[in-house]
Write a protein that binds this DNA or RNA. Structure first.
Length: 325
DNA sequence: CGAAGAAA
DNA sequence: TTTCTTCGG
């Protein structure tokens, strides 16, 4: 099940865009997914599909979404989910292998009934096609937007970067970021109004919990990787953890059990992340190449991306996008 | 995922 | 008051 109940636990406040400054490690999958579901929805979907049926809504989404960052003092770093770490010229074959490898792993997990592994793989596999991943990366590269390849969940990697101080915020709609230990998470970066700031320290302080206890509470409620205990919502989860200390004590006291509790706990406490990344925050986008890529190479209607490019261009000429160094 | 209404 | 369920986006 989902874990929308975390919203009731997390300390979240609206923050003016102009108060933001620094680097935001964006969960690229979530960010892109947003446009693939919403942008396509209310407009003519054929507009975002080429003659041979290739989805290009992601390109439109990127061009419409990036100005949000550029027009304010925040540099996006796009963190992609685990997959091929290297995107060179001869990657088609290896990418296919990678996909099949995921499929195989999923198959094995299903056969074994390993619910946690299934959930984990599905969260990575979802529905960003290889083409979408590839064209997104290429467009971002032309725009000089940094990309980081996560070994597994992009969410976890982004949180890791924020914890190390290499990013000031994690950008994601997902409350899981909190459980992965992201100090500050920005939500609603795509929509019109101001974003929300989710504060881990404030959350822990408010409930007088440790991060480990917060994770345990979340497991009781239910996460993307496990079903919670029936009858336990945010309120009782917090009070039970507070009373008994940790997950196992709570379960023992109530005579309840939770499937794969230890696995899920480990998933959040010690996620698969890497220190092997590097990026510059001084952006030098090649707008001409980006325009050509989107309109000429992929045939996107120029009108669809005109305003977005203009906004990016204005940001570039006015600020050079190099305020951060 | 969020909102709203039912159920507990 | 809190949790469960359903439905819309």
């Amino acid at each position: 099940m989902g874990n929308a109940a975390l919203r009731d636990i997390a300390v979240i406040e609206e923050i003016p865009f102009d108060d933001l400054e620094g680097v935001v490690a964006v969960d690229a999958h979530n960010w892109l997914y947003r446009y693939l579901t919403t942008t396509v929805k209310w407009t003519n979907s054929s507009k975002y599909t080429t003659a041979d049926g290739t989805e290009v809504a992601n390109l439109v989404g990127i061009i419409q979404g990036l100005p949000k960052f550029f027009e304010h003092d925040i540099t996006p770093v796009m963190v992609f989910d685990g997959g091929p770490a290297d995107l060179k010229a001869d990657e088609i074959a290896s990418r296919r292998e990678q996909r099949e490898s995921y499929e195989d792993q999923l198959e094995v997990a299903r056969e074994e009934g390993d619910e946690v592994a299934i959930a984990q793989l599905e969260s990575r596999t979802q529905r960003l096609t290889p083409t979408i991943q590839e064209t997104s990366r290429e467009l971002l590269r032309l725009l000089d937007v940094p990309i980081v390849e996560a070994p597994a969940e992009g969410e976890a990697q982004a949180a890791h970067m924020a914890r190390r101080g290499d990013a000031d915020y994690v950008g994601s709609e997902d409350y899981d970021a909190l459980l992965f230990g992201a100090p500050l998470t920005l939500r609603q970066l795509t929509s019109k109004g101001n974003p929300e700031l989710m504060d881990l320290e404030a959350t822990l302080e408010y409930h007088d919990l440790t991060l480990e206890q917060l994770i345990d509470a979340a497991i009781l409620i239910g996460t993307d990787f496990n079903d919670g205990v029936h009858g336990i919502g945010p309120k009782t989860a917090i009070s039970e953890i507070t009373e008994h200390g940790d997950l196992w004590s709570v379960l023992e006291a109530r005579g309840d059990s939770v499937e794969y509790g230890d696995r899920v706990r480990q998933l959040f406490r010690d996620p698969n992340v890497t220190d092997d990344y590097e990026f510059e925050t001084t952006l030098e986008p090649d707008l001409e190449a980006a325009r050509a890529y989107v309109t000429d190479e992929w045939g996107v209607d120029a009108g669809e991306v005109e305003r977005g490019f203009e906004r990016i261009e204005e940001s570039v000429t006015q600020t050079g996008l190099d305020r951060w160094t």
